[in-house]
């Protein structure tokens, strides 16, 4: 449990259509079922897919719906470049749980094809991680798609990331509560795969943070 006046802040980042709102709903349920207070500042609005989206997710004793710059204890990024896009929110040595998936924007693809010299390359995960490391040493980079496929369903990437989140030792919600919330909110047919994905994510996250 977090002590009174103490708030655990998580910045979710991703691309529209990746299921960020479900991720937020799962952690919201887990926190509430644990008896913790939750407040979020969400980005809804234009419903197009493929835009940059975020959720400010605050557990404990939050006052404002928005995390102040430099005060996020954790960032969960479902797409790698989106982790860097919201880096101003992460506190020094905060934890980044991120997928290695990059979804290039069309304008970046256009720059790559327009370069006849072929010198313009897509931004790489290595470049992103190198930048993130200038703020924190705690970067958990997950091949979330591979782990999801290993769990038996390529659409369980969210559960992989949530599993890794639950492995973080400062995370205020017990891992089993998080798992229960995951399994309560995913489609019934995918419960087994999501449970496996959660475990794979938790193992991968745990290993990463210990090293």
């Amino acid at each position: 449990m977090t002590e009174t006046g103490k708030t655990f802040n998580i910045m979710f980042a991703g691309v529209g259509g990746q299921g960020l709102m479900l991720l937020s709903a799962i952690l919201g349920k887990a926190a509430v079922d644990t008896g913790l207070r939750v407040m979020t500042g969400e980005q809804h609005g234009l419903s197009q897919r493929q835009g940059s989206i975020y959720v400010h997710f605050r557990i404990g004793d939050p006052i404002s719906p928005l995390i102040p710059y430099g005060r996020a204890d954790m960032m969960i990024a479902m797409e790698a470049s989106e982790a860097l896009r919201y880096i101003e929110y992460l506190k020094e040595d905060g934890v980044v749980i991120m997928s290695n998936r990059i979804m290039p924007s069309v304008t970046e693809t256009e720059r790559v094809v327009l370069d006849k010299q072929k010198k313009t390359k897509y931004l790489t995960v290595e470049q992103i991680v190198e930048r993130l490391k200038q703020v924190t040493k705690n970067v958990v980079l997950l091949d979330s798609l591979a782990l999801a496929i290993q769990a038996g369903n390529e659409r369980t990437e969210n559960s992989v990331l949530i599993g890794a989140t639950a492995a973080c030792k400062d995370f205020p919600i017990p891992a089993e509560e998080v798992r229960k919330a995951v399994l309560a909110l995913v489609p019934p047919k995918t419960v087994d795969a999501n449970s496996k994905a959660f475990d794979l994510g938790r193992d991968a996250g745990g290993a990463c943070l210990e090293s």
Binding site: Q50, Y69, G70, L84, E88, R111, L123
Partner: peptide, 27 residues
Amino acid sequence: SIDYDAVLSKAEGLKDILPERPPIFCP
């Protein structure tokens, strides 16, 4: 409580490699 301007300007520097993601029609 935090030097917010310093946090923002550091972030801006780190993000100089980041391509923008403009709004776009869905697939």
